[in-house]
Design a binder for these strands. Structure first.
Lengths: 137, 137
DNA sequence: AGCCGAGTTACGAAATTCGTAATCGGTAAG
DNA sequence: CTTACCGATTACGAATTTCGTAACTCGGCT
């Protein structure tokens, strides 16, 4: 993981469809080197996967979840990651334990999700923030 | 946004490098149709961008920022989106106003960022959560 | 029936990716 | 100092994919 790797990653984060040839030109090396390095980064797990960021609905939200003290947050996270409309599940430090990043069709879908969370036995409380605006660097 | 679109999105979410030809074969249509639809989905903003999910070994964090009441949060967001290590800037509802999603090399880099935020005149307070674990759906 | 328009298909050209062999640069051993 | 070696890089032709564009299909509408 040297400077060249980081520059390649930055470009791919911005647009994962950038051709190797174009990346190579930008960072000043050859297509083959970019190809080798990207392949290595995938093998090493630095690049977990190539994916798309979607906004299928109109509403994004963060749902901050507090679970009971005797609960394994890993298990709860794993479960919630499978839920519909959930993009990310973060285990976080601080007052709450888990943050869900949600992309839903409407407020009802968000509400369904919160309801589902609150109905879970291990969940003590939830706090929801609507994401009113998003900027990507 | 019909069933075909959704199937294409599912495939791209799993692997955004899947060739259109392969997607076409999988969903039972032609390369051109997949190409047209992906292009439309990008235009409509359903696909926000093609990107990579990385596990750099870096430190991820959420920095929740409260700004003064008489401040335009749009301006502050725009500014912070340019800061190094900041992946997302969200304007959110709730107690705090802005949430920064940060991916930094180490705790010092995160601390620098928090310091920079706190030194900003319009920022009243910050609250930081480390992201200890991330799951992607 | 005839027409229109959005979506789909077809196909040759351009660009990209891929496989592989040659080359380079650094380093440890003789 | 030379040689051998190894991983990384480069070079290049072949295979594959993407791209531009024109033809086609199939509803709905008059």
């Amino acid at each position: 993981m040297d400077e060249l790797d980081r520059r390649i990653l930055d470009i791919l984060r911005r647009d994962a469809r950038t051709p190797n040839t174009e990346i190579a030109a930008e960072v000043g090396t050859s297509e083959g080197t970019v190809r080798n390095r990207v392949e290595r980064l995938v093998d090493e797990g630095v690049i977990e996967r190539f994916t798309i960021a979607t906004r299928t609905g109109n509403l994004k939200a963060m749902v901050e979840v507090t679970v009971a003290v005797d609960v394994d947050t890993n298990d709860v996270s794993e479960l919630m990651a499978e839920w519909k409309d959930v993009d990310f599940v973060w285990q976080v430090s601080g007052e709450e334990d888990i943050v869900l990043v949600v992309d839903a069709a409407d407020t009802r879908a968000v509400n369904d999700l919160i309801t589902r969370a609150r109905e879970h036995d291990d969940v003590k409380s939830t706090k929801t923030r609507l994401i009113l605006d998003e900027r990507i660097s």
